[in-house]
C-alpha cells in the first residue's frame, strides 16, 4: 500500500512537478469549461439554459477547489505561473467559444467525460485533500453527462442534418481530448502512478472514456474511430493519436492558450487566492 500525503508539502520532490502540472491542467480546463457553458444562457430551450448555467456553476466551483491545491503548491515553493494566455493549460478545444449549440453538446459529452474519468482516477488518490473533495464533484459530473446524452440522442434521432452536424462537431475535438488524458509511458505518468496520485494509466483513462462515449457513438450511428469488440465487449480506438509537438506538462500541443477576448475575462490567478477550509 502506498503512502498517503496530507498536504502537497508532503509529496516527494520527484513527483511534485507532475502533480502540480496535472492539477493545474484540470483547474484551467474546468475554469474554461465553466466559462463556455456560461456563454450559452440562450440554449435552444429554457430548461437547457438553466442546465447550462448550473453546469457552469459546477465547473467554476470545481476549478476553485483545484486552484486551492495549485495555491498550496505555490506555497510549497513551486513557481507561480505567469498570468499570460500561453501559460494556460486548459484543454485546447476550449480556447475559443463554441460556435453553435452542436459544439456545446459535443463538448458537454466529450470534455465532461474526459474530466469525469480523470476525477474517478483520483477517487483513491494518495493526495488526501484531492481524495476528500473528488466524490462530490463526480456526483455533479454525472448529471452533466446525462444532459449531453439526452441532447446527443435527440440530435442523432431528429434528422440526418443534425446527426451529421454533431458527428462533425465531435470529430473536430476528438483527438485533442483523447490526448489530454495523457501520453502513455511519459515521465509524469510514471510519477503520478508511482506516488499513487491516480490509480490508472493514460491508456486506462482512454478506455474508461470510450466506455462513456462509445455507447453514445454507437447508438447515434456516428462515424467515429471507436468500436466495440463483439467478443470481449471492450471499446477500441480505431485511430492512432498524433503526439507531434505535444507538451505533456501542459496537456496541449499548441501553446497559444485561450483567445484574447476569453483571457480578458479569466485573468484572476495572480490577483485571487483560493483558500479552502480544511
Amino acid at each position: 500500500m502506498s503512502t498517503n500525503f496530507e498536504t502537497v508539502h508532503d509529496l516527494p520532490e520527484s513527483c511534485q512537478q507532475a502533480v502540480y502540472d496535472l492539477i493545474l491542467a484540470v483547474a484551467d480546463s474546468k475554469h474554461l469549461l465553466g466559462l463556455r457553458y456560461g456563454e450559452w444562457l440562450g440554449a435552444p430551450v429554457l430548461e437547457s439554459s438553466i442546465a447550462a448555467s448550473a453546469m457552469a456553476q459546477d465547473e467554476f466551483g470545481h476549478s476553485r477547489l483545484f486552484y486551492s491545491l495549485v495555491d498550496d503548491f505555490v506555497q510549497a515553493g513551486l513557481p507561480q505561473r505567469q498570468e499570460v494566455p500561453s501559460e494556460y493549460r486548459n484543454i485546447e478545444v476550449l480556447d475559443q467559444p463554441f460556435e453553435s449549440w452542436t459544439d456545446f453538446v459535443a463538448a458537454n459529452a466529450l470534455v465532461d467525460a474526459a474530466l469525469l474519468v480523470q476525477l474517478e482516477a483520483f477517487r483513491n488518490s494518495s493526495l488526501m485533500p484531492l481524495r476528500r473533495f473528488v466524490p462530490k464533484l463526480i456526483q455533479e459530473e454525472v448529471f452533466h453527462l446525462q444532459h449531453a446524452q439526452g441532447w446527443m440522442s435527440l440530435m442523432t434521432n431528429t434528422s440526418e442534418q443534425s446527426r451529421s452536424a454533431l458527428q462533425q462537431a465531435i470529430r473536430k475535438i476528438w483527438d485533442p481530448i483523447l490526448c489530454w488524458l495523457g501520453k502513455p509511458q511519459s515521465d509524469s505518468e510514471k510519477a503520478l502512478l508511482g506516488a499513487g496520485i491516480q490509480d490508472i494509466d493514460s491508456d486506462g483513462l482512454r478506455t474508461r472514456w470510450m466506455e462513456q462515449v462509445g455507447p453514445l457513438v454507437e447508438q447515434g450511428h456516428l462515424d467515429l474511430p471507436v468500436s466495440n469488440d463483439t467478443i470481449t465487449g471492450e471499446w477500441i480506438l480505431g485511430s492512432s493519436l498524433n503526439w507531434d509537438g505535444w507538451d505533456e506538462s501542459f496537456r496541449r500541443a499548441s501553446k497559444t492558450g485561450p483567445d484574447a477576448e476569453t483571457f480578458a475575462q479569466i485573468e484572476c490567478f495572480s490577483t485571487h487566492s483560493y483558500p479552502v477550509g480544511t
Partner: peptide
C-alpha cells in the same frame, strides 16, 4: 413536472429546475 424529448433530458432538466 418537466417536458422533455427523452428521459435523459427530463432527468437533467428536473435536477436543475427542482433544486
Amino acid at each position: 413536472t418537466v417536458v422533455a424529448p427523452n428521459g435523459d433530458l427530463a432527468a437533467a432538466f428536473a435536477r436543475t429546475i427542482y433544486n
